[in-house]
Every structure is written in structure tokens, then in C-alpha cells.
């Protein structure tokens, strides 16, 4: 049972980690919480659902669709909420991301209807049992994919020139500009990357839970935000750690206390960290 809860937690944590990264990449470059992350997750899921339903029953194609959709949404949010509002109080951009979130949810409701759609399963056969716990292949696929994406992002951010640009902009955008780094483009790139990560997470999550609907990203987005704060909003490894830890703590919380306390656990962690350790587990002291 403990093994099963751990596996449940790691699977759920993979989705949280991807979304937490989406928050962290964007928060890193702009010190702005992108509240449209949950809605981007949902749009990614719909893109995957459309692909599976009308084009091909191929999960890789669905993930590609989720990635492209998320990328475009991230790009668009940056253009509207950030670039056009440059120089206005930060709060305007923040509210604008909330507006985007509402807008996307309503648009999805208008286009697809409020009815929950069924997302087919992939690789749903039992892989193995371990200590009484059942693991299906898809769980392994989801965890593996998430870890691969997280590693690729890690490489992108820490080993490439574009990543160096993101890191310098996130530390000091004025000085980054003096190094010849195109700050606008770097911010735009971070938004697109964050969007793409959320979009893929949407496809992975919707296949795991077998459902797609316009409100599916709401709670997911909020919890992942907690995970990101938990790990340290400006730290990419922190966001990953926060995502996995939050899910595992939640799952064990259900086991030890009760299912009704599940969300409370997540949000107590959020409030607790905001109050007592705002930089999170791995964030730097100077960062927040």
C-alpha cells in the first residue's frame, strides 16, 4: 500500500513538476506569476484530444500538438500581457494573465462545450505488480516522459546559450542587455517554453485521468503553483523537487489522515512557505 501511494504520488508529481517548471521559468525571467498556466494545461489537453480524435490515435502526435499549442499560447500571452503593458505597474500584467485564463476557459467552453470529453487510454496494460501495487505501462511512460522533458529543459537552461540568456535575464535584465542579450526575445522565449511545458503536461495528464474539460486545469494550476513556491519559485530544480514532494506528501496525507484534507495539505504548505520561507526549498535568498 505504501508502495502504491508512492507510485501514485510520483505519477501525479510528474504532472505537477512540469507545471511548476512552467511557473518557475516565467517567474524567473520576469518575477511574474503566470496565472494562465492551468488554462494552458487545459488547452494543451484539448489539442491532444482533437489530434487523437480527428487525426490519429497517436500519443506522440498528441503531445506534439499540446507542445505547439502551449508554445503559441505562451508566446501570445507574452505579447499581450507583458509586452504591450511594459512600464505599467506589474499588477496589470498579473491581472492580464488571470484575464487570459478566464478567456481561454470560456473560449474552450464555447467551442467544445462544457461536457467532459473522454480521452482514450494509451499503454494501459499492467506492467508489473510490486509489493501489492499495480503499475500500468502508461504510468511508466508518463514518468519517463516527464523526466526526459525535465532533463532536456535542464540541459537547455544550464548548457546552452539560450539558457544562459534566460539565466542572465532572470538575474539582472539590465546588465543582460549590456551583454548584447536581446531581453525582449529572451522573455518571449521563456513564456513560450513555459507554455509548451504546460501544454505537454495537459496531454499527459488528460491521458492519465482519461478526461478533458474546460475546468480541468484550475485546481491543477493552483496546486502546481504551490509546488513551485514549495520548491522555490526561481529555481528550476526546486520546482521539480516541489512538484514531486507535494504530490507524495498529499498522497501520504490522504493515507494517514483523510482524503478530505488533501487540498488543505497542499495549501497549508503554500501559506506556510510564503510566511516562513518565501524562497522555498531551493530558491536563493536574494531571489524573492
Amino acid at each position: 500500500m505504501i508502495v502504491q501511494q508512492l507510485i501514485n504520488g510520483i505519477t501525479q508529481g510528474s504532472i505537477f513538476a512540469l507545471l511548476a517548471i512552467s511557473f518557475a521559468v516565467i517567474y524567473g525571467v520576469l518575477r511574474l506569476v503566470n496565472f494562465a498556466t492551468g488554462a494552458t494545461y487545459m488547452m494543451g489537453a484539448f489539442a491532444g484530444w482533437l489530434t487523437v480524435r480527428y487525426i490519429s490515435q497517436n500519443i506522440f502526435l498528441a503531445m506534439l500538438a499540446g507542445l505547439c499549442t502551449g508554445w503559441s499560447i505562451g508566446f501570445l500571452i507574452e505579447k499581450v500581457a507583458i509586452k504591450s503593458l511594459r512600464g505599467v505597474a506589474r499588477i496589470a500584467s498579473l491581472i492580464c494573465t488571470i484575464g487570459f485564463s478566464i478567456f481561454m476557459i470560456e473560449i474552450a467552453t464555447v467551442i467544445f462545450g462544457a461536457e467532459t470529453k473522454a480521452m482514450p487510454s494509451f499503454f494501459n496494460e499492467k506492467a508489473f505488480t510490486l509489493g501489492g501495487a499495480t503499475v500500468v505501462w502508461y504510468q511508466l511512460f508518463l514518468i519517463g516522459t516527464a523526466v526526459t522533458i525535465l532533463l532536456l529543459l535542464q540541459i537547455l537552461i544550464f548548457k546552452t546559450k539560450a539558457g544562459l540568456a534566460i539565466r542572465t535575464v532572470s538575474l539582472d535584465f539590465k546588465t543582460a542587455g549590456l551583454m548584447g542579450i536581446n531581453v525582449d526575445r529572451t522573455i518571449s522565449l521563456a513564456f513560450s517554453l513555459g507554455g509548451a511545458t504546460a501544454g505537454i503536461a495537459g496531454v499527459l495528464g488528460s491521458v492519465y485521468y482519461n478526461i478533458v474539460n474546460p475546468t480541468m486545469g484550475n485546481l491543477q494550476g493552483l496546486k502546481s503553483f504551490s509546488a513551485a513556491v514549495f520548491g522555490g519559485l526561481t529555481s528550476i530544480p526546486g520546482a521539480i523537487l516541489g512538484g514531486y514532494l507535494l504530490a507524495i506528501v498529499e498522497n501520504f496525507g490522504v493515507q494517514i489522515v483523510s482524503g478530505g484534507y488533501r487540498d488543505i495539505i497542499g495549501f497549508v504548505i503554500l501559506v506556510g512557505f510564503l510566511l516562513f520561507r518565501p524562497r522555498g526549498l531551493l530558491g536563493k535568498k536574494t531571489s524573492l
Binding site: K161, L164, R167, K174, A176, L178, I181
Partner: peptide
């Protein structure tokens, strides 16, 4: 820049790479 404005969380070498961006 005034005040040096080193990227504090990047290593010395990464700072230099940033300069050669």
C-alpha cells in the same frame, strides 16, 4: 556598469560566457 553588476548566481566562467554572448 557601475557597481560591477556581476551575475551573482553564475560562476566566474559563466559570467565571462555571458560577456561573449
Amino acid at each position: 556598469p557601475e557597481g560591477r553588476k556581476i551575475f551573482s548566481e553564475l560562476s566566474v566562467e559563466e559570467n565571462l560566457y555571458a560577456g561573449a554572448y
